[in-house]
């Protein structure tokens, strides 16, 4: 079997379960993001894959071979740390050549490979500089080049872009994705930034409290969140408590027509702001009053109060002029855009 398998992984720190029974499979050559809020266990999981932590129980398999008992330095993987962990006493070239020197490569071979890698990260000719002479983004690329120097089977990155400013981060996301596709290397990135996860990865693994909430293609997880947590964590979501009613699902602000809610009381419905249409009429299945309007440029966020339920909707800029704070509107909430979680499922 190819790729990386995690089977029934547990990790306890004292009485705290940091990783609680996680199994997942990463296909060869895919780009996977471990996504979740801080403390959800994603970094611990990554460190176990790297060999920097030992799982309390469970198996880690790479290309079908059990990896648990292989110490970190023999796992043949590349890792980029949140702090980048570039060695301050070595020059840029020496940093990149470090894993090659450790493996006994000749000086000439190292020099050749360093040039290649610097070209790859688009920083030719900086081999002789010291780390402190580089900008944040440049250091980022050097850390990536160093991690990839020995062409590892697995490429791990722990919050790699968190230290960069927003614009540079976006550019690096694209670049990292392109690099991964070019090399075809199995890549696992830990991040708490859902936009980053969505733009880069083939697969995302949403984690919370040491457990996997959902695993799958980003757009799939976004459109069909498996749990209210995923719905809320990936982008914006309106989570509305509903009950089965006549002709649809009933909630305090009205009825979502045609939505079939099985479990009676205590079901939750998730609907994305962009799926809600705000209509200027005062009649309709759902009535709401405008509480606040936030202009975002490309879209307008409209904050609404529907019978005590707070709802956010997106609208196109040219229509928003119709909605004044305090005015009453009706909401169109199509049943096919709704995801239902039964029995207070979170």
């Amino acid at each position: 079997m190819s790729g990386l398998q995690l089977v029934d992984i547990h990790k306890r720190f004292g009485s705290v379960a940091a990783v609680d029974n996680i199994s997942l499979s990463v296909d060869e050559g895919t780009f996977v993001c471990l996504l979740g809020p801080s403390g959800c266990g994603k970094t611990t999981l990554l460190r176990m894959i790297a060999g920097l932590e030992d799982p309390t129980s469970g198996n880690i398999l790479l290309q079908g071979r059990r990896l648990n008992d292989t110490p970190a330095h023999l796992r043949n993987l590349g890792m980029v740390f949140q702090s980048l962990a570039l060695f301050p006493h070595l020059s840029v070239g020496e940093n990149i050549a470090y894993p090659l020197r450790i493996r006994g490569k000749s000086k000439a071979a190292c020099g050749e490979r360093v040039r290649e890698l610097l070209d790859m990260v688009q920083l030719p000719g900086v081999a002789d500089r010291t780390i402190t002479q580089l900008s944040g983004g440049q250091r980022q690329r050097i850390a990536i080049a160093r991690a990839l120097a020995v062409s590892p089977q697995l490429f791990l990155l722990d919050e790699p872009l968190s230290a960069l400013d927003a614009k540079l981060r976006e550019a690096m996301q694209v670049e990292l994705r392109q690099l991964q596709q070019r090399l075809g290397i199995t890549t696992i990135v830990v991040t708490h930034d859902q936009r980053e996860a969505m733009t880069m990865s083939d697969q995302i693994v949403v984690m919370s409290n040491g457990k996997v909430e959902q695993m799958g293609a980003p757009i799939e997880a976004y459109r069909r969140p498996a749990t209210p947590f995923v719905a809320d964590f990936l982008g914006q979501a309106n989570l509305i408590k509903v009950a089965a009613g006549e002709g649809g699902a009933r909630f305090s602000g009205g009825t979502i027509p045609g939505l079939d809610v099985a479990g009676g009381e205590g079901a939750l419905v998730s609907i994305r702001p962009e799926d809600i249409a705000v209509l200027p009429s005062e009649t309709g299945p759902v009535k709401a009053s405008v509480v606040f309007v936030r202009e975002m440029g490309a879209i307008v966020e409209i904050y609404l109060d529907a019978g005590g339920e707070r709802i956010v909707a997106h609208a196109a800029p040219k229509t928003h002029g119709d909605f004044k704070v305090g005015s009453t509107v009706s909401l169109s909430m199509p049943a096919e855009a709704c995801v239902v979680f039964d029995g207070a499922g979170a």
Partner: peptide
Amino acid sequence: EAARTLGS
């Protein structure tokens, strides 16, 4: 840790 993942 970086040094270890790099092979030391």
